[in-house]
């Protein structure tokens, strides 16, 4: 007879989801193979719940699932029309806020924003685009920054500060003016300590931080989301696969 105590569970869309004490609803759901769309979450970093795409209803009230700890017996709704429509709206806002031209973007096929958009059935940006003017930073010999695609997830900010210990990136401005900046007196990436091996180079979910001269080297059919849909990729990522 096993002496191991059974893990507590909550219910998500009618299914039991086991969790560990202190684990968030999102982390537990993904670990159990249940996909919840998200953009700013990353299993290796402390969540900060800013994108709101992972919003679920817990016992009838909406919460960001990445920052809400699971409790025994919680009743969670996630894959329902009301929430998916809200998520789609958020993704459409992001598409219209920046300049996201998937047809010529080298991140196409590897982009979480694009993959989440497809997963939510987004067929157009719906809202009028703002077309912000965001010049590129090509000053670094090996890295290009295309701010047009930034969704303010702060993953690069967190990775650079917490893992790389360099704090190369920050967010500046407020509200609609909020934008990604480089922590250098000149404001140029070339004047930072960023290196291509940094963690900050690999966490961008869109196409902002790019290795130069790579472009379209990976053919269509072999890109990240060509091979597996985001539902599978997100679950594998949570499990560290």
């Amino acid at each position: 007879m096993s002496t191991e105590k059974p893990r507590p569970t909550f219910q998500m869309d009618g299914h039991d989801v086991p969790f560990d004490e202190g684990q968030s609803i999102l982390a537990a759901a993904l670990a159990a193979g249940r996909y919840v769309p998200y953009l700013c979450y990353h299993p290796e970093f402390q969540p900060h719940g800013s994108c709101k795409v992972c919003t679920v209803k817990i016992n009838g009230r909406t919460h960001a699932s990445c920052t809400t700890p699971a409790h025994e017996g919680d009743v969670v709704e996630s894959n329902v029309d009301e929430l998916n429509d809200m998520r789609k709206g958020l993704v459409q806002f992001l598409f219209t806020e920046g300049n996201h031209f998937c047809p010529s973007c080298e991140a196409s096929g590897n982009c979480t924003l694009q993959a989440v958009g497809y997963d939510l059935g987004m067929t157009s940006a719906h809202y009028s685009p703002l077309f912000p003017d965001r010049p590129l930073d090509a000053s670094h010999p090996e890295v290009l920054l295309d701010f047009n695609r930034c969704i303010l997830c702060e993953l690069c900010v967190r990775a650079s500060a917490l893992v790389d210990k360099k704090s190369v990136f920050s967010l500046a401005g407020r509200g609609i003016q909020k934008h990604l900046v480089v922590n250098a007196e000149s404001g140029k990436l070339a004047d930072t300590e960023l290196s291509v091996d940094d963690k900050a180079m690999s966490v961008c979910p869109v196409g902002v931080i790019l290795r130069k001269r790579r472009g379209f080297q990976v053919p269509i059919g072999e890109r990240k989301y060509d091979e597996h849909p985001i539902r599978e990729v997100a679950v594998q990522k949570q499990k560290g696969e």
């Binding site: 047809p103 080298e106 590129l136 290009l144 472009g215």
Partner: peptide
């Protein structure tokens, strides 16, 4: 103008 050169073959074909 102002775009990285490796993007050009994919962008201009549009």
């Amino acid at each position: 103008q102002g775009r990285p050169y490796w993007e050009v073959p994919v962008m201009v074909q549009r």
